[in-house]
């Protein structure tokens, strides 16, 4: 055996060894019957996962054998179908049509979200740019982040009737408290994220801008906003989830229509399949509202993948 073939053999075993280690390390899939790194595998496993979940649910429901505690998936989906068809069971007091509750929830979410974006982004921007007061603003921001905003809801609701004359807004009077709740739940998330984004804009960018004689106006438009945009948008995405949460909490606690109210109305007559169906609708809206912007963000801000996108959101 000459030296050359020996060397080649050594090289080959080296590569094999490395491959072996890599396989073991990265996915630990030595005995797998399918290559897990393909799209097909992912699709198959997602389907299997859905079926498996359904099977577990069915099994658990059969074992518990009490439709109040846990209805079977089939009866839940049947209830969902009937709910969408507006066939609401007797006894569910004051539950409106499916469209009306869906529309109300979406309306409150949308208005709460737009209002808090309109207020939150400028405020967050201003306090983020105000470097002189950083030491004071920071603790307040941290405190705001920590405070559970839901605790403010009773204050807002029971106070808002006499605090703000409804006629001032001339907007469907009974939705105003709900919108306020959604707003208060959302606005701080947006303020905090805008603030952090603006504050973390690298100093060197701003200084270069200043060195080339940019005015504050130009600095805002061409340096700070573009650099902070991914964080602002990430904050808005989180805010969207919060706005929905706020809308549903408001409806559950205060309103007499909407998905939040409906969910609890079905609970109070112990009609769990319908309740689960309502929860499914809410879950679907939540999923769409949170996941769609994430996809858009991935496309738009490839150049600055924020920690939050990688983590899958921090709300």
């Amino acid at each position: 055996m000459n030296l050359k073939s020996l060397k080649r053999k050594w090289e080959r075993t080296k590569v094999e060894r490395r491959n072996l280690v890599a396989q073991e390390v990265i996915v630990e899939q030595r005995e797998s019957w399918i290559d897990l790194n393909t799209i097909q595998a992912k699709v198959i496993f997602t389907i299997v996962s859905i079926l498996l979940f359904g099977a577990i649910w069915e099994l658990a429901a059969k074992l518990i054998n009490n439709h109040v505690i846990l209805p079977t998936p089939i009866s839940s989906f049947k209830a969902l179908y009937l709910l969408i068809q507006n066939k609401i069971p007797l006894g569910a007091a004051g539950v409106g049509s499916f469209e009306s509750m869906l529309l109300q929830t979406l309306e409150i979410t949308a208005i709460g979200f737009l209002l808090s974006s309109a207020v939150g982004i400028p405020v967050g921007y201003l306090i983020g740019r105000w470097r002189a007061a950083e030491a004071i603003i920071d603790p307040w921001i941290n405190a705001l982040y920590a405070i559970p905003m839901v605790a403010l809801i009773p204050l807002l609701y029971f106070g808002s009737g006499s605090l703000i004359p409804v006629s001032v807004f001339d907007y469907q009077g009974d939705l105003l408290p709900d919108v306020l709740v959604s707003f208060i739940m959302t606005v701080f998330t947006i303020i905090i994220n805008t603030y952090q984004g603006v504050r973390l804009v690298s100093n060197s960018l701003v200084e270069v801008g200043k060195a080339f004689g940019a005015s504050e106006n130009q600095l805002t438009r061409h340096v700070v906003i573009p650099a902070a945009l991914p964080d602002i948008v990430a904050g808005m995405r989180l805010g969207l989830g919060r706005a929905l949460l706020g809308a549903i909490i408001a409806e559950a606690l205060l309103s007499t229509n909407g998905l939040g109210y409906t969910m609890l109305a079905f609970q109070s007559i112990l009609n769990t399949p319908y309740m689960v169906a309502t929860i499914m609708v809410i879950a679907f809206i939540g999923f769409v509202l949170l996941q769609t912007p994430k996809l858009i963000e991935r496309r738009l801000f490839k150049w600055k993948e924020t920690e939050r996108i990688k983590r899958g959101g921090n709300e």
Partner: peptide, 23 residues
């Protein structure tokens, strides 16, 4: 650590995570 577990659990984690707490 395990890709199989990841694929099986991940869709549900994402869905459940998006559900508003009050639901």
């Amino acid at each position: 650590r395990y890709l199989v577990v990841d694929y099986l659990v991940d869709p549900w984690i994402n869905i459940w995570y998006s559900i508003p707490a009050i639901a």
